[in-house]
């Protein structure tokens, strides 16, 4: 007998495999989680855990006949969103500027709520933190002090047992620790003061910066929107760059206005926002009078995609204070 025929027969009793649910699930998870580290903060994983994983069976097998999802209707015309950001740009210079010197540290106080996941369970972790970041260079020399706040259930889900570890630590102020063990961000994602103070001060230049090496995967505008946040939270831009940032953000297609928004500390304001690929409206909230940036908020607008009821808040932050100090507290 031909050896190729015999080889073809070898192990031929292994049948074609029909049960591929585990692999399908892993593929869907990988497909929906762009390999961009800072997306986590904007709640992408939350949407993933809730909506997509649950929909895997249907999604994998029906995708061919499913029409492309229609873009969600804007809340208000885009022009109004441009206005929020333009006002923010105009107000960028209205506060006394911080002028940190090389060798000093910027210290940020903030509060945030983000999704956590473990063993297939999901909940909302909350914390209040102070971070000292060097004026120049990576976050490795930074110091972080974090205090956990009571975790909350992810909307529509019970508070899982995995969240209890956090519950046990609530109310105990953390000790200062190193802010990061490594910081391998690409150059264009840096947000230390030395770097951001050299960014373009014109709209077009800042816009190019926001789109630097954005992968051409259909999520470009959302990624650019996400990068705006990277320059707002725990980051301080000189007034000229801050104004350029808001003007550039206003040029990103798909930005809408949210008249009533709230940051993680409950401060009310007006927001510019974009709906994420996972059905969450990612808002940047501004004070209605001063147009100071207050914080961000993620609100579900597509229950199926986000795996949570429409209107529920799945992430938020509040930028409470920023200052300059000569050195951070000692790390034990």
């Amino acid at each position: 007998m031909d050896e190729l025929v015999q080889l073809n027969d070898f192990r031929s009793e292994v049948p074609a495999q029909e049960d591929l649910r585990a692999e399908a699930e892993r593929l869907m998870a990988g497909m929906s989680a762009p390999a961009r580290p800072d997306l986590r903060r904007l709640g992408l994983r939350a949407a993933l855990a809730g909506g997509l994983a649950a929909a895997v069976g249907a999604a994998v097998f029906l995708v061919q006949s499913r029409p492309a999802p229609a873009p969600p209707p804007p809340l208000i015309r885009t022009v109004a969103a441009v206005e929020v950001l333009s006002r923010a740009a105009e107000h960028a210079g209205s506060r006394p500027e911080l002028r940190p010197r090389p060798g000093q540290f910027l210290v940020y106080e903030s509060q945030s709520m983000d999704t956590s996941e473990e063993d297939g369970e999901i909940w909302l972790s909350r914390s209040r933190r102070t971070i000292w970041l060097p004026v120049e260079g990576s976050a490795v020399k930074g110091v972080l002090r974090e205090e956990l706040l009571a975790p909350l259930p992810y909307p529509g889900h019970p508070l899982p047992s995995a969240a209890r570890a956090e519950q046990a630590l609530v109310g105990r102020p953390g000790r200062p620790e190193r802010a990061a063990d490594f910081d391998d961000r690409a150059e264009f994602l840096r947000n230390d003061y030395a770097y951001v103070s050299k960014l373009p001060t014109d709209t077009e230049g800042m816009r190019r910066h926001l789109y630097t090496r954005v992968p051409n995967d259909g999520l470009q505008d959302y990624e650019a929107w996400n990068r705006v946040g990277g320059l707002l939270d725990e980051s301080y831009l000189p007034a000229a760059q801050r104004a350029a940032l808001f003007r550039a953000a206003a040029t990103i297609p798909g930005v809408v206005t949210v008249k009533e928004a709230q940051d993680a500390a409950g401060r009310e304001g007006i927001a510019a926002a974009m709906v994420s690929p996972n059905g969450v409206r990612e808002e940047y909230v501004f004070d209605r009078k001063t147009y100071d940036y207050l914080g961000r908020r993620g609100v579900v607008v597509d229950a199926e995609l986000a795996g949570a009821p429409v209107g529920s808040v799945v992430s938020s932050s509040a930028q409470l204070k920023v200052g300059v100090v000569d050195r951070p507290p000692a790390v034990e």
């Binding site: 292994v14 591929l20 399908a24 497909m31 259909g218």
Partner: peptide, 25 residues
């Protein structure tokens, strides 16, 4: 699928059974 990533699931649907059989063998 380069514009609509979720469409890639169709490639999985078409070929995963055969690829899996090969890998198991």
């Amino acid at each position: 699928s380069r514009q609509e990533p979720e469409v890639f699931a169709e490639i999985f649907r078409r070929h995963a059974p055969e690829i899996k059989r090969f890998v198991i063998r």
